[in-house]
């Protein structure tokens, strides 16, 4: 499944970057996250509770921030396993400045689903991922508002 979109954030790229690279804020902004544990410089172990239409589940797995090009691009990789199926994602995220104070985030990637997630969840995945993405960015926006401009 393709996951792509863009979002305008009211902060400059360096600040957005710093926020995204901070594990504590990441734990707050990723929807459904119940546990996030650092396992390496840019790798995390995570537990996510997510409802996808007719199926819901607790996902455990790894999150990884890769191909870091501060402050303009990185790739978010996720391998998540659950009793309702596994999800594997690699999403390229680009941050580009808009004017002096804003950042446009463009993301594009592929999510591979298996098991019940694929056979029952696929139909609603588009809608669910839209909702989750919106939640993510609105959470991120709130976090950015909290921290003073750097």
């Amino acid at each position: 499944m393709q996951l792509a979109g863009k979002y305008l954030l009211h902060a400059a790229p360096p600040k957005v970057w710093a926020t995204l690279m901070n594990m504590d804020t990441l734990a707050k902004v990723v929807p459904g996250i119940s546990r996030l544990e650092k396992t390496g410089d840019h790798t995390f172990k995570s537990i996510l509770d997510i409802k996808l239409g007719p199926v819901s589940g607790s996902f455990t797995g790894n999150l990884q921030l890769d191909d870091l090009q501060e402050p303009s691009a990185f790739t978010l990789k996720a391998q998540q396993n659950s009793r309702i199926g596994n999800a594997n994602a690699a999403i390229k995220i680009n941050l580009s400045p808009v004017g002096t104070d804003d950042t446009e985030i463009v993301f594009d990637g592929d999510v591979k689903l298996s098991g019940m997630l694929a056979s029952l969840g696929q139909r609603v995945m588009g809608g669910v991922s839209n909702t989750l993405t919106k939640q993510f960015f609105s959470n991120l926006e709130k976090e950015l508002e909290k921290t003073p401009a750097s």
């Binding site: 007719p54 591979k112 689903l113 298996s114 098991g115 694929a118 056979s119 029952l120 696929q122 139909r123």
Partner: peptide, 14 residues
């Protein structure tokens, strides 16, 4: 089936 061999309509909703 999708290209990964997942049956994507394996329920009466689909």
């Amino acid at each position: 089936y999708d290209e990964n061999g997942q049956l994507t309509n394996a329920s009466y909703m689909d």
